[in-house]
Write a protein that binds this DNA or RNA. Structure first.
Lengths: 136, 136
DNA sequence: ATGCACCCTGTAGCAACTACAGGGTCAAGC
DNA sequence: GCTTGACCCTGTAGTTGCTACAGGGTGCAT
């Protein structure tokens, strides 16, 4: 499989694939006589793993750990669980933060009744944190 | 006010203040004889505006527009409202995305029952998108 | 032999900071 | 008067996870 095919097969940008190779997330594949990268199924499933994990918001470093783990089938699964659990907690925290943010923005946006900037409640609210009801 | 005082007064990193000046978000202040930056109240409230807007998730470019607007009190307030409304929509979309993500992660994390990596449901789920119930 | 799609390397850019290195300034205390 | 420490200065490079070229080579069809 050439890089373009792998790209289509996994929905990954070609430049991204080369980037993953450069940072050591994907192993360097064999090359053809013309120096083209030549991938097999193992590469494809590894890349799918990476893409899927990225879609779920794991960082490259977390994915590196998860890949190490899956490369060594004898290791304890607890580490994968810890990584995923920690990530889940971060996502939950982010949701909570964004929810506060949304409420604050809703309050700010709702105050606009048109007019000129000098009287703008939106700009006023942005300038003065004391109008807020949440910490952020 | 020297930069350290401004930093404490607004809860902004000193390097960040200089960065904002460099990118033209804050006007360059006067200098003392020793070439130290010397700030006044106008600087402080402008920086507060910027920080508060950043906390609410506005991009630097959006903040630039909002500042332009507040610098020109005769202008129409509608633009500020549009920027804030669009941002609110983005936040809402982000929350929706993260919520799907959280559900997926919860499902994945819940499958771990210990054991070795070879049998790890977490790693399996990360490798195979078909286990997912949502688009992401 | 000429076009076109594809591949290669290497470098630079994005956002919004953050972190130095290497130097100058100023007030307090000995 | 001299040192110590806190503060300030500039300039550059690093962070994350890509993305976008520039400038060149390869492979196949017409």
């Amino acid at each position: 499989m050439k890089i373009g095919e792998l790209s289509r097969a996994t929905g990954t940008n070609i430049e991204t694939i080369r980037y993953y190779e450069r940072i050591g997330l994907l192993p360097a594949p064999d090359r053809t006589a013309a120096n083209y990268r030549s991938y097999g199924d193992a590469h494809r499933s590894r890349l799918s793993f990476v893409r899927h994990s990225r879609e779920l918001g794991f960082t490259i470093d977390e994915i590196r750990s998860l890949l190490d783990l899956s490369d060594d089938p004898a290791r304890d699964c607890g580490e994968a669980d810890r990584i995923a659990t920690r990530h889940l907690e971060q996502v939950e925290e982010k949701i909570a933060q964004l929810t506060l943010l949304r409420d604050e923005l809703t309050r700010i946006v709702g105050r606009c009744r048109g007019g000129v900037a000098a009287d703008c409640r939106v700009i006023e609210a942005l300038g003065d944190h004391r109008h807020c009801e949440n910490a952020h």
